[in-house]
Design a protein around this nucleic acid. Sequence first.
DNA 1: AAGTGGTCTAGACCACGGG
DNA 2: CCGTGGTCTAGACCACTTC
Lengths: 264, 264
Amino acid sequence: MPLKESSRHVTDAKYQQIADRLRDQITSGALKPGQRLPSEPDLVRDFRSSRNTVRLALALLTNQGLVVTRQGLGTFVQEPVRPFTALLSRAPGVPTGHHATAALPVSGSADGEPETVRFLVEQVSASASVAAKLELQRGDPVVIRRTLQRLDGAPWLMINSYFPMDLASGTPLEQAACIEDGSIKLLADLGYAQAGFVDEIGARMPDAREYDFFRLSSGTPVIVVNRTSYSQERPIRLSRYVYRGDRVRLAHEVGVIPARYRSG
Amino acid sequence: MPLKESSRHVTDAKYQQIADRLRDQITSGALKPGQRLPSEPDLVRDFRSSRNTVRLALALLTNQGLVVTRQGLGTFVQEPVRPFTALLSRAPGVPTGHHATAALPVSGSADGEPETVRFLVEQVSASASVAAKLELQRGDPVVIRRTLQRLDGAPWLMINSYFPMDLASGTPLEQAACIEDGSIKLLADLGYAQAGFVDEIGARMPDAREYDFFRLSSGTPVIVVNRTSYSQERPIRLSRYVYRGDRVRLAHEVGVIPARYRSG
DNA sequence: AAGTGGTCTAGACCACGGG
DNA sequence: CCGTGGTCTAGACCACTTC
C-alpha cells in the first residue's frame, strides 16, 4: 500500500485542479481584474480535458464570485468595487446632515443621492415572519410600502416597510405617496412615538426578484437588515432592507471615534 | 413574424424549466424540508432530458441554497435552521451577563457556551486591508490572534484579531495564551484605553478555509464583521469576525426596547 | 449488489458580440 | 463572418451508502 499523506482523497478531480490553477493565477495577480481568461476551447487544449470539465471549473470560480462570464465576449476576472457604506446608527449628538428618507444614510458614493425608481403600496396578509416581528397573527392585514432605489445609476437597495393595519388604516401610510418627514414622524403624530428599534442582520443568496433587480451575477449574496421599531408598548413598523452584498457595507459606530476615522 | 410578448427570450432553457418546476414544488410545500427529491435518473425520465441537463437544474437550486446533495443518498430540500443571534451592541446601562470573550455575546443557542477549538498567535506583515484600518504601512509587522469557535457542537465563528506590533511587542498579546479579562482590558492597562469602535459589516462567498471549517454547502455566504477599536488618538485593534450566513444573525439595538422584545 | 450522486468524454447546435 | 460562451445529448466509469 503506497504511502499517502492523511486522506489525500479530498479532491483530485480534474475540474478542481483547473479551477485551482486559474484561482492561483487570479490571486497571484498573473490574471488581473478585468482581464479575460483563456477561452474555453483554449482551456480544453491547455488542460487536455473536455469542454464540460472546463465549464465545471469556470462554474466553481463563478459561484465563488471570482470571475464573470459574458456570452459572446469571454470570461473575465471580477473587478473589485469600492463599496458604499450604509450607517446603521451613530453615536448620539452628531448631526448626520442627511435628508430624511426611509433608507439608511449612505456614504462613499460619487454623487451621494439615492434615487427612488419605483414605489408601491400594497395591503396584504402578514406572512409568518412579518407577523412574528409585528406581534400579529399570521394572515392579519398589513400595509406594505415598497421602494426600489438606485445609487450612482446602479440598483442598490430594496426596502419593504410593513405596518400593522390597525395603525395604518385611514392614514397617509395607506396612500401611495411620499410621506413628508418620514413615517417615524408620522407615527409619532399618530400617538406611536418610536422609543427604539432592533436591527437583525443576515446574509443569503438572492431570490429571483432580487437577482433581476440588482443584475447580480452568480456568486453574489445579498445583505438583509430587518429593522423593527417599537413604541413604549408595541412594535409599530418593520422595515426590511435588502442590499447587494458586493457593493455595500454596513457601518456601526459605538463610543467616541477620532474624527478622521468616522464614516460619512 | 410570429407575435411574441415582449422579449420572451429571457429563458426557455430546459434546465431552467426543470429548476423552476422543482422550486415551485419546494416553495409550495409539495416537497417539504428534509425530503428527498426524485433521483437524477427519475428526473431524466420525467423531463425527457439528459442527465447533464438535470444536473444543471439541480446545480442552480444548490447555488440558491434551496437543496443539498449527499453522494450515495440523494438530493434533499434544505432544512431551515433557527439562527443564533450575535449582539453587536446594546443600549447602555444594561448588564449583559455574558462571560468575557473576544467574541460577540450570543443568544439563541441550546447550551449557549461558545467553545474555542483552536487558538493560534502569529506575527506577520500587514496586508493592504489590515494596514489601512490600523493606519500602518503595508508590510508593517502585526500580531494576529486567531480563534476558531464552535457552538452547540457546530463550527460557527472564526476570529482574527490584529494588533500593531508597536503596541503588542513584549506584552501577553504576543503569547499564545488566553488573556485574562480580554484584550481590551489589557490594552487599557498598557495606556491604550478603548474610546470607541467602528463595525463594518459585509457578506461574501466563503474562501476555501472558511468553506472547510464551516462545512458549508454551495450557496451559503459568510457574514464578515470588521471591528476597529480606537483609543482617543489611534486605532489599537482590528478584529475580523467571520460567521456562516445560514445560521447567524447580527442584532443591534438602539433606544429603549420593551423588555419582552429584547435579544439575549 | 443495487441505487445514489460525482466526474468525464466527444460531439452537436444555438445565441451573442464584434469586425 | 468568426470566435465567444450557452445549451443539450448519450454514454461511460467512479465513489459513496445501504442492504
